[in-house]
């Protein structure tokens, strides 16, 4: 009898949502990664909601940066997963760098579920201003 009640409850939850049309446009966060060239540095940022530092790995090999992050699905004793859109999230992304970087100076920060990796360019790869001389 209780399971019947639970089913009805979730149906209600679902029915209301369908009416709102909200669930039609769910965007999975695991696709959100962006890459920016700031002149002196390259910046990669990736959405990794709910992930801890220990679940994220950043590897730099030659001109490739590899990001690996994985979120284990939650499990709660006595709870039943009745709607699953987030799932276990896994991110594996290899990015080819457009220029040489100073691998020693790379730093990464994790804030509010967003990973940001700063990759300073190697001296020779930074933009330089070339003065134009007037010919005498």
């Amino acid at each position: 009898m209780w399971s019947l009640l639970h089913n009805d409850t979730m149906k209600l939850f679902d029915a209301f949502e369908r009416q709102f049309q909200d669930s039609l446009a769910v965007r999975r966060a695991d696709t959100a990664i962006s890459f920016l060239d700031n002149g002196d540095e390259l910046v990669i940022s990736a959405d990794v909601p709910g992930m801890k530092q220990s679940e994220i790995e950043i590897m730099i090999e030659g001109e490739f940066v590899t990001l690996r992050a994985e979120r284990k699905p939650g499990a709660f004793e006595g709870f039943k997963l009745s709607r699953a859109e987030r799932g276990a999230q896994k991110l594996v992304r290899q990015i080819e760098l457009p220029c040489r970087i100073d691998a020693e100076a790379v730093r990464a920060e994790l804030k509010d579920g967003v990973l940001t990796v700063h990759l300073p360019k190697a001296e020779g790869a930074k933009p330089r201003r070339i003065p134009v001389k007037a010919s005498a």
Binding site: M10, F13, V26, R27, F76, L81, E85, R86
Partner: peptide
């Protein structure tokens, strides 16, 4: 629209 999980206890 953010993704959700619903756990029912």
């Amino acid at each position: 629209t953010p993704a959700i999980d619903v756990y029912e206890g």
